[in-house]
């Protein structure tokens, strides 16, 4: 029994380790080119804010920020990631990074502008940290915007309508607006926190 258990845990660990390796390989989007300022992730944008008006990348200069593509009719990853980010910011607010954490912004960009109106998105985000803003791109602008961030999204039909597949990572940008890596819901809270601290600390 114990030997079996041991084998099982061993097998799981091997699978987990392999998964991590695959994830690291797949999730590292061209990190080295960003140093030179020629990063392929990011670039200027101007998108309607769920709270009214527009948010444009120039107005974020001097503030580190995260960008997350999702939709409100998402059962798990989106609310889960928003909860993670809310908890992380709350955590940072209580520590030595509190002053810097005030500058941090998260932009939640809907990949489902057909159903996610500004009103729905603003209402939905009221459950999370106030530094998270909702953005509603037009249906026409969304493909180019996603491409700019190498983000993937796709409509998947179901019997009662459709759902969306989408990139789960939160893209991080430093105060100069340069891509600085990603954080993901599947990472441990401590690893997420370390990445945010590194981003804010600069």
């Amino acid at each position: 029994m114990t030997a079996l258990k041991l084998i099982r845990y061993g097998a799981w660990s091997a699978i987990a380790a392999l998964g991590v390796v695959i994830a690291v390989v797949l999730l590292s989007p061209a990190p080295r080119t960003d140093q030179a300022g020629g990063g392929r992730i990011g670039g200027p944008f101007k998108i309607a804010s769920a709270k009214g008006g527009e948010i444009d990348s120039a107005s974020l200069r001097g503030k580190p920020y995260g960008i997350f593509f999702g939709f409100t009719q998402c059962p798990d990853i989106c609310p889960g990631t928003l909860m993670d980010l809310t908890a992380l910011m709350d955590d940072l607010d209580k520590g030595p990074m509190a002053a810097k954490a005030k500058d941090f912004r998260v932009l939640f960009i809907t990949v489902d502008p057909e159903r996610d109106t500004a009103e729905i998105l603003a209402n939905y985000l009221s459950a999370f940290d106030g530094r998270i803003d909702g953005l509603v791109p037009t249906v026409e602008a969304l493909p180019a915007l996603a491409k700019q961030f190498a983000a993937y999204y796709q409509k998947v039909p179901t019997s009662s309508g459709y759902t969306m597949n989408h990139t789960s990572a939160v893209y991080l940008f430093n105060r100069e607006g340069v891509f600085a890596g990603t954080i993901d819901i599947q990472e441990s809270r401590s690893s997420q926190k370390a990445k945010l601290e590194r981003l804010l600390g600069r």
């Binding site: 797949l26 059962p75 179901t158």
Partner: peptide, 14 residues
């Protein structure tokens, strides 16, 4: 439904 996280993408299907 089934959800799977593949290559950084959250995928869901009925």
């Amino acid at each position: 439904h089934e959800m799977a996280h593949e290559g950084g993408v959250m995928k869901m299907r009925e």
